[in-house]
């Protein structure tokens, strides 16, 4: 609770902050994640149980049937677009084993909710894994005025953990 308060306070103290149009190219992102040498991509299909689970997690039918990922050992990187309110947010998620190693916003196109790009928010996802009910095993504190973006990032993390689990099994 106090964390949510601190987040709100922090944001209220920087009203001049505006959404930046930073765009991280997937290639640059992957090069950073894999420290130079990016492995070849692979794909996982959203069909059958995967599709039903994806629909349950996202709260809507996914707009795509195939998700691309890059894997090296136990680590895999995923890049997924998810609508915040009206525009897609491009989100990168790195999974190590069955835990999220990091999340990143590669492109944010909405006019509101850009606060999810801040490190203090993204750090909350470090080390989260999927509980048995396909929810994250840890609560993610929201941000006032960015609820839909927070939901998008949370849901994408859940989806990626599910898919990463399906390819490893």
């Amino acid at each position: 609770m106090h964390k949510a308060f601190l987040i709100t306070l922090t944001l209220s103290l920087i009203p001049w902050a505006v959404a930046s149009d930073d765009h991280i190219a997937p290639e640059d992102y992957l090069r950073r994640v894999f420290e130079g040498t990016v492995p070849a991509s692979d794909t996982v299909w959203l069909t059958g149980e995967n599709r039903e689970a994806a629909e349950r997690i996202l709260g809507h039918k996914p707009d795509y049937l195939r998700v691309r990922y890059w894997q090296e050992g136990q680590r895999s990187a995923w890049i997924i677009d998810e609508i915040g309110k009206t525009e897609p947010i491009t989100i990168g998620v790195v999974v190590n084993g069955n835990q999220v190693e990091e999340v990143e916003v590669l492109a944010f196109r909405e006019s509101r909710g850009w606060e999810i790009k801040h490190d203090f928010f993204k750090r909350q996802f470090d080390g989260v894994s999927l509980a048995s009910n396909q929810r994250l095993d840890r609560n993610i504190d929201g941000i006032s005025g960015a609820t839909l973006s927070v939901n998008a990032m949370t849901n994408v993390s859940r989806l990626v953990l599910l898919l990463a689990g399906s390819i490893s099994s």
Binding site: A25, P26, E27, Y64, L65
Partner: peptide, 17 residues
């Protein structure tokens, strides 16, 4: 834009890919 026989989107690739 990759589509199935029924017109469902499989994947959309752009300059990033």
């Amino acid at each position: 834009i990759l589509l199935t026989d029924n017109g469902e989107i499989v994947e959309v690739l752009d300059a990033d890919y």
